[in-house]
Design a protein around this nucleic acid. Sequence first.
RNA 1: GCCGGGAUAGGCUAGCUUGGUUAGACUAGGGGACUGUGGAUCCCCUGACUCGGGUUCAAAUCUCGGUCCCGGCCCCA
Length: 425
Amino acid sequence: MIQCPRGTRDFLPDEMEKRRFYENRLRHVALTFGFREVETPIFEDAELFILRSGPNVLKELYAFKDKGDRDIALRPEMTAPAVRMFVNGMSNDPKPIKIFYFGQCFRYERPQSGRYREFFQFGAEIIGSANPEYKNGARPETDAEAIAMAASMIKAFGLKEYRIRIGHIGVLRQRIADAGVPADRAAEVLQKLDKKLYEEARPLMEEMGVSAAEIDGIFDLTETVGGPEVLDKVPGEVGDYLRKVVSFLEAMGVETPEIDLGVVRGLDYYTGMVFEAEAPALGAEKQICGGGSYTLSELFGGEKVFSTGFAVGFDRILLAAEKEGQEYVPRGIDAYVLSVTDDMRLKAAEIAAMLRREGISADVDIAGRKMAKALKYASAVRARYAVIVGAKEMEAGAATLRDMGSGEQKTVEVGDLPREIRQAQ
RNA sequence: GCCGGGAUAGGCUAGCUUGGUUAGACUAGGGGACUGUGGAUCCCCUGACUCGGGUUCAAAUCUCGGUCCCGGCCCCA
């Protein structure tokens, strides 16, 4: 027997229906925020992902040569493809460009709870915020828009337990650069700070010639955690900037987020505000959403534009909702048409076809079963109604409509079936 | 890449400690008993020891390795 490859899954009909249901909820939220959907290839020129990545990214990239000797990689995330798409085909569109996408990504990692090698992301990007308000090019309203949508998406899953934390990587980058950390070693320091591994970060920075006082100041900054009031301790533009983000979130009715200037995220291309959301119901892999503001387009040969984006880990947030006890009841089909006797089979097919033309999901017995077995099958495929086609009623152009939930039945003229079935929805 | 726990029909499992019948039950699936009414009862049928090597007269059972799953570490763009 051949199984799915490690870290991949099959989605059976009930599971798939559930996934589509939530997926469409996310689409709905994105559309109500004025975003439009896009799709990019599942594989790309490997360079797109290698350009700005470190060794860890490469290690987990599904990369290979195709038959034409091209270097190809399965996408490990979708921000880079989205920005490539912007540079290739949307760079002259009116800004800001608001797009969203849903699809699978691939990373060669060790699978564990909430982590798969093929996983699904729902993401959105606001590309090119016009009228930069601050010298780093970003606008608080843009960032607030992204966070507000992320919050709405989490709510769309009905998640009760979650937290959203907002930070700013620009201030931290600036601070460690000013303190004397060389640009090419900033990532090492940021990684320790992200994990709050101070006892490891201190000797590292000392070695780079950072003074003890500066180190303490940097640690203090990453310890800026709490409600929006902690921003009072943050001097200069960043404090002012994040306060504005918070004000816009409040205006939009988004519950007050936590501030955590220690949120560093992937240390790659983020330049300003960064945020993440986690669901404690999950275990080790509890992050369900992450994003921030960045510039990436100039790397792919476009002009430099300021953008903000985020992605929701679809599999994880679904898992979190399940762990909170949420149930999704599959809808199944509307009607199952069966004939009482063999001479009614043509008539049954005719009625099923009529229902289908009316937009009702209808199945018909194609297995030649006797009535009792056909009803049992109808119940198993979660049909809400059985349409029983018998000679007796057919003399008057009617059939028996049986409510599979209650067992109630009535005789309905064939022409009235669609209305009767729809009525009860 | 590292540490730990697992794997018996589609699903849930008994058997494994102490090697020895035809690997048992429940459920699901197919057919029938019931010739116009399902989720009831009964009968019949289909269907499994994760894979490979080793020990042994004999392996689901002991042993080694691979694969996959689960939990954690690392990482998480």
